[in-house]
């Protein structure tokens, strides 16, 4: 049951991060690509649409499965999923019931948006809206909900939401960067366009990392009630430190890209020869991001130190 719950949460996190971060990428990296009849970034946009359809379906399946597993865990196993009284109690007799209903509606809306005949701008805006709501409301399905309906509880929810949104903007944008770099590699005017999207992504990522770190420290303080020493002798602490280690590696790669690879590309006559190395570095950064999501999936169901 525990392994299933972790796997479900992991896939769900990855899918929703893509649904938020991928469309957002096109709004800050090159909004002209979203104009009707635009002739730029066609291969990357086609790949983005395909990825978003897969992510929307995965999010719907795993989002529903996550709720089902929560309910099965608190009642009498999966048989309780067909018990009307248990379902009534879950959806209408708990603090997280109304949020769960809203999330089911959001997951359905996201899946519908993926297949409606919409312009890229309308579809991507809708994805950002539903993914924002999904990332924020998942706070009520975990540790951040412990504060209840108080100002302190609202602060915990807000900090969690900031953390999730910033992380989704960073990690969810990385596949788009890879798509764009792959397309640029076949383009004659590679260097200028590469530098433009890299610098725009870099600015967004710098902002996102700032929010991630500040909200991450605050989240940790909430979980350990201010006693950070508990992180060094508990299972919860070991998992959190593993997550921090992977994030530190991601930051090291981002630092290399921002302060070594991009300046080198700027100085080299054409810059194309640097794209391969940069793509490899970003691919590793993405792989580490996916690992971080897996660790977060475990962390969210692990009891913090008492």
């Amino acid at each position: 049951m525990m392994v299933l719950l972790v796997a479900t949460r992991w896939i769900y996190f990855a899918a929703v991060f893509v649904i938020f971060g991928a469309p957002l990428f096109w709004f800050y990296a090159d909004q002209e690509a979203l104009a009707p009849h635009a002739k730029i970034w066609q291969r990357s946009l086609a790949a983005t649409r395909r990825l978003l359809r897969i992510a929307a379906l995965l999010a719907a399946v795993t989002g529903i499965a996550w709720l089902a597993e929560i309910l099965a865990g608190m009642a009498d196993g999966f048989s309780s999923l067909v018990d009307p009284e248990t379902l009534r109690l879950f959806f209408f007799g708990t603090q997280f019931g109304p949020v769960s209903i809203a999330r089911l509606a959001l997951l359905l809306a996201t899946a519908i948006v993926a297949f409606l005949p919409l312009s890229d701008r309308a579809r991507f805006s809708s994805f950002i809206a539903t993914a924002t709501a999904l990332l924020m409301t998942q706070a009520w399905l975990g540790h951040a909900a412990e504060g209840g309906a108080t100002a302190y509880g609202a602060l915990m929810i807000a900090v969690y939401a900031i953390h999730a949104l910033a992380a989704a903007a960073w990690v969810g944008g990385l596949p788009m960067l890879l798509f764009a770099l792959a397309e640029i590699a076949h383009d004659g005017d590679a260097k200028a366009r590469t530098l433009t999207i890299l610098s725009r992504f870099s600015l967004m990522a710098t902002l996102a990392v700032t929010f991630i770190l500040v909200s991450g420290i605050a989240n940790t303080a909430f979980r350990v009630a201010g006693s950070f020493d508990k992180l060094f002798w508990t299972g919860y602490g070991a998992i959190l430190l593993t997550k921090l280690g992977a994030v530190a590696l991601m930051l090291a790669l981002a630092y290399f890209n921002r302060f070594v690879a991009i300046p080198q590309m700027r100085l080299s006559p054409k810059g194309e020869e640097r794209i391969g190395g940069l793509r490899a570095s970003i691919a590793v950064e993405l792989a580490l991001g996916i690992i971080v999501l897996g660790v977060a999936a475990i962390l969210g169901i692990t009891a913090p130190p008492q």
Binding site: G142, H143, E146, G147, Y152, L155, M156, V159, V214, I217, A218, A221, F222, R223, A225, G226, A303, P304, P305, Q306
Partner: peptide, 24 residues
């Protein structure tokens, strides 16, 4: 701006005991 914000957050966390998962 950051220093007072962080101080407020940590003061709140340090003075309010809130531990996820309900134990006896």
């Amino acid at each position: 701006l950051l220093e007072p914000l962080l101080t407020a957050v940590f003061t709140c966390c340090l003075t309010t005991l809130a531990l996820a998962h309900a134990f006896l």
